[in-house]
Design a protein around this nucleic acid. Structure first.
Length: 673
DNA sequence: GCAATGAGCGTC
DNA sequence: ACGCTCATTGCT
């Protein structure tokens, strides 16, 4: 903006501005002079443009102060982009804490927290109507959870309690969350609820709409810029005080926050893909602490991270007594000793379903109840097997799992090893000598076909992939669904059968067992109680701890055991880890420049784990600097902050030396390989 | 003794 | 990626 001679604002002429550069060494406020014309608009939290090193860049005004302690000459604030104070003081504090927690920059976190401006939406006239009243709700069902009275007592005394809530089987969790929200709103404070995906959001919205009407808004990525900004603004301006949403809704500028809820924090949809990759559960943890709001992290299962917080005494249990759980859980059966039953039933053999599952399904159908079959998403496991005997296809050099190289047809010419990358052009099964291969997982479509033949005359419904059903009508039918796409049914399923369980359990993944338990409990929650004849059949060995946890419906015991195991082998969340990804030379030099805390150790380098995207800026194929690798940095839980400080210091150094090779630093990576 | 040139680094 | 400082160089 071209101006004549400028006059300083009469009071607090200095603006502290955070430049939106995303560079570690520039992640701090810089002072600019505010002129008299800008005085009114240049309030804390507004977007501004400033001249920085000769270029005009975006920034946020953090503060107005009387004098600067910068020894040099101050430049003028070029322009106030809009008088809307979008970065509230609470949000600024939260973004700073999240950046520090994840060794990232405040600018990067602000990009996650504050949606892009939409000028026309901002200018829209807003009707000034008072917030509608919210009718009181009963909390009867909550009384079934021990620890709830304490939670409420602490809430009302303003103590900001933190709870790990494990929902009972069959629990109407959207309704329960709506009740907590209503109680909070009645006490004059706002609510944020974060769920993994749009389906959960739809259910939550349906439960909340009757209670809150306009006071509740949903924020999701798929909204489009206009609607997204309009709703976000209505929260900022205090026109709505209940926010329901996915990932970044955890940052929504709800005023006078009283409660943060995160549902199903183990779902990998909650893994934030943008730097610095903050997990909504941790955002909620930091926020509830910073704004003295209550925190509830719930699910049917318990994540090891929440278990660690409970064991540290930071969060409290909100769980139903065993008798209550047992009364509501379905009868749960897995395979014992002899899988002979599978082989004996020719029908079952064709559909890889054991007799016990067939019996449960027939019983449910006879009682005019729907039956749910859970099958892995096709392509969930990218490895392949011999099409004749189903033996896993393995690399002849290193015995690593083979994968289909391209996305085309199943031809053995495209096989390669997932571990060493060796191409396999002449596959021979080590068990039977067969030369044809097939994808390991049978998709939902194929299973539906098989079941249609096995239960001739029964309607078959599929849910998964492109067509996900929210619910199905009660009555005898087969429902074949992939994980996370299971339709609900009023009254519950008569039986649910989990097929191809090895697809979860055989994965070389830190969270394989935890994920299996989470998915199977969620499935069991859709089934009628044992008293009402409900059966959950897990087609896996009953001796496997994850299967046992489901049979006994014991998410807390499982999480505790899992955490113990991780402590024994030094895996997160028993320890804190950071991943450094990039070319071997780049990450080697970077890690050398990190001053690790006393408990620190560097592990690797190892190849970048399967499914982990290369760091931004890397050319897809090993163009110049060789294959992408990962080094893990490990410290004791108590030294997490020291580690992130050391990582920030190393990045400052790296930037100062103008070293620019693509690199990604990720604190608490979702997979560690 | 001092202008011209370039590397290095901070950026208000 | 601009523009400042400071050191080195080359010429008087």
């Amino acid at each position: 903006m071209v101006k004549g001679p400028r006059e300083q604002a009469p009071v607090n002429p200095v603006a502290r501005v955070l430049p939106m550069l995303g560079l570690t060494h520039l992640d701090r406020p810089f002072d600019y002079l505010v002129d008299a014309e800008q005085d009114t608009d240049a309030a804390p939290g507004v977007r501004v443009r400033v001249r920085f090193a000769g270029r005009l860049i975006d920034g946020f005004l953090l503060e107005r102060i009387p004098t600067s302690d910068h020894p040099g000459k101050l430049g003028w604030l070029d322009r106030v982009v809009s008088p809307e104070q979008v970065l509230t003081p609470e949000l600024a504090t939260l973004c700073r804490s999240v950046a520090d927690r994840y060794a990232g920059t405040m600018a990067d976190v602000i990009r996650l927290a504050v949606p892009p401006r939409h000028a026309r939406t901002e200018a829209e006239a807003v009707s000034i109507v008072p917030l509608a009243d919210v009718a009181p709700v009963k909390l009867d069902t909550w009384q079934h959870y021990s620890g709830f009275d304490g939670f409420v007592a602490a809430s009302t005394s303003g103590a900001a309690p933190r709870a790990a809530w494990q929902a009972m089987p069959g629990e109407d969790w959207p309704r329960r969350i709506a009740e907590l929200a209503a109680t909070t709103v009645a006490s004059g404070r706002g609510v944020v609820v974060v769920v993994p995906d749009q389906r959960d959001l739809d259910r939550l919205e349906a439960a909340c709409e009757p209670l809150f009407g306009e006071r509740a808004v949903t924020l999701a990525a798929g909204l489009g810029p206009t609607a997204r900004y309009r709703r976000w603004l209505s929260v900022l301006r205090g026109r709505a005080d209940v926010v329901l949403g996915t990932r970044s809704a955890g940052f929504a500028p709800v005023r006078n926050l009283g409660l943060v809820v995160v549902w199903d924090d183990g779902d990998d949809s909650l893994d934030e893909p943008r730097s610095p990759y903050p997990h909504p559960r941790e955002v909620a943890v930091l926020r509830s602490h910073g704004e003295r709001a209550a925190l509830v992290v719930g699910g049917y299962a318990r994540s090891t991270e929440m278990q660690a917080l409970v064991e540290a005494g930071w969060a409290h249990d909100l769980v139903a007594p065993r008798a209550q759980v047992r009364a509501r859980a379905p009868r749960t059966v897995a395979l014992s000793g002899e899988d002979a039953a599978i082989a004996r039933d020719p029908m079952a053999r064709s559909a890889r379903i054991p007799a016990v599952a067939f019996t449960a399904a027939r019983t449910a159908l006879a009682a005019d109840l729907p039956v749910l079959f859970s099958v892995p998403r096709s392509g969930y496991v990218p490895s392949v097997a011999c099409s004749r005997c189903r033996t896993h296809a393995r690399c002849r050099a290193c015995h690593g799992p083979l994968q289909l190289g391209g996305s085309g047809e199943l031809s053995s010419g495209e096989l390669s090893c997932r571990w060493c990358g060796r191409a396999e052009r002449n596959f021979h099964c080590v068990a039977c000598g067969g030369t044809a291969i097939r994808a390991l997982t049978v998709g939902a479509g194929r299973t539906a076909e098989e079941l249609g033949r096995a239960f001739a005359g029964t309607p078959v419904t599929t849910s998964g992939g492109a067509t996900i059903l929210d619910s199905v009508q009660p009555g005898a039918r087969l429902v074949v669904a992939t994980p996370g796409a299971e339709p609900t049914v009023s009254g519950g399923y008569g039986a649910a059968i989990v097929l191809d369980t090895w697809a979860y359990l055989d994965r070389e993944d830190l969270r394989a067992a935890e994920t299996a338990v989470r998915r199977w409990l969620a499935l069991g929650a859709l089934v009628r109680s044992a008293a009402d004849g409900g059966n959950l059949i897990v087609v896996a060995d009953a001796g496997i701890p994850a299967v046992q946890a489901v049979i006994r419906w014991d998410p807390v015991g499982f999480a505790a055991a899992e955490l113990d195991e991780r402590a024994a082998v030094g895996f997160p969340p028993a320890v804190t880890m950071a991943a450094v990804d990039g070319a071997a030379k780049t990450i080697g030099e970077f890690v050398d420049s990190v001053t690790l805390p006393s408990s620190g150790a560097a592990l690797g380098p190892v190849p970048l784990p399967q499914g982990v995207r290369p760091p931004a800026g890397s050319a897809d194929k090993g163009k110049d600097s060789g294959p992408l690798e990962r080094i893990l940095l490990r410290v004791d839980r108590g030294q997490g902050r020291e580690l992130t400080r050391a990582l920030v210091a190393a990045q400052v150094l790296r930037n100062a030396h103008h070293e620019t090779g693509p690199i990604r630093v990720q604190v608490d990576p979702p997979t560690i390989g």
